[in-house]
Design a protein around this nucleic acid. Structure first.
Length: 280
DNA sequence: CACGATCATGGGCGTAGGCC
DNA sequence: GGCCTACGCCCATGATCGTG
């Protein structure tokens, strides 16, 4: 594998910390001719699978999905989960794309088996999130989110596409007069204060401690599952002919070690709602 | 300081994981 | 191992928070 082909998953697999990942990615971007002024993209897809953007939009997510319709092509999925922020987008050098298009790149073990075989398709990154904490106070919306809720309600009946609405809301926010904006900001600040109070109180409760325990448990089980999946893949790869027998054994082992605990815990957990995420 | 993640919105598709 | 359900992710937007 060439250095510039390394993906976010590869870094994670190598235990490279995020800050270091960003530094390395910046250097790679520079090598690829991307100026420092341009933000880097967190590439979970090796360059060989990156497609050129289809529009001039500043947002650059690579996908087979039909824009705006929410419809996805049935032929697989190639996408980068880029941040919703426009800052997170960057054009990947088209030369890089061409250069590596035919090359085979290695993946994180998990993706490796994702049988790109079938359609050359890349399986999107998908991680199960822990259940949110139903007892935790709801996170307060920002001023912009408050505004967008109002604006969306007004635009709801205009039969506009999802992205059109987003663009209009963004425009309206930019053109909002200072006084009105201040109003939203004040509301947001008040909501935030209330949230902080509520959350500090909530942290003293048993529910909070239970949820923290659930999170820890959830994480360790995910790790466990990952190991099992790797094991299965290895077995499948190593003995394709006798795969059924081995697989059965392996899967039963896997199920014993995971489902027994996880399913019951999942059902028994008190849930929770601090939106945690385990992307690494 | 830079930059990714999150939040709301809705519809549709694909995947993880539970269950038998 | 196959079926089925729940839910993550995609699309756009900007402010804000968190992390390295």
């Amino acid at each position: 594998m060439k250095v510039h082909e390394i993906t976010e998953e590869d870094f994670v697999a190598l235990n490279v910390k995020r800050g270091h990942r960003r530094l390395i990615q910046r250097e790679i971007a520079t090598l690829n001719g991307i100026p420092k002024s341009q933000p880097i993209i967190v590439n979970s897809i090796p360059p060989s699978r990156v497609m050129k953007p289809t529009s001039s939009s500043s947002f650059y997510a690579i996908s087979h999905k039909d824009n705006n319709t929410g419809g996805e092509s049935s032929s697989g999925y190639a996408s980068i989960r880029s941040s919703s922020s426009p800052f997170s987008s960057v054009m990947i050098d088209s030369n890089t794309v061409k250069e590596t298009n035919s090359g085979k790149t290695s993946f994180d073990e998990d993706d490796e088996n994702s049988d790109q075989s079938s359609n050359n398709g890349y399986i999107r990154k998908y991680k199960r999130h822990p259940k949110p904490d139903p007892n935790a106070p709801a996170k307060p919306p920002s001023a912009y989110v408050m505004f967008s809720n109002t604006a969306r309600a007004q635009l709801k009946d205009h039969n506009l596409s999802f992205s059109d609405i987003a663009k209009i809301v963004g425009d309206r926010w930019k053109n909002l007069c200072a006084r009105e904006k201040q109003l939203y900001e004040r509301n947001a600040m008040r909501a935030k204060d209330e949230y902080m109070d509520a959350f500090n109180k909530y942290k003293q409760t048993q529910e909070y401690r239970d949820y923290q325990a659930y999170l820890t448990d959830f994480k360790s089980k995910q790790e466990e599952n990952k190991k099992i999946m790797r094991q299965r893949k290895r077995l499948k790869r190593d003995s394709p002919s006798s795969s059924s027998g081995n697989l059965a054994d392996c899967s039963s082992n896997g199920n014993n070690s995971t489902s027994s605990g996880s399913s019951s815990d999942y059902n028994n957990n008190n849930g929770s709602n601090i939106s945690m995420d385990y992307y690494g």
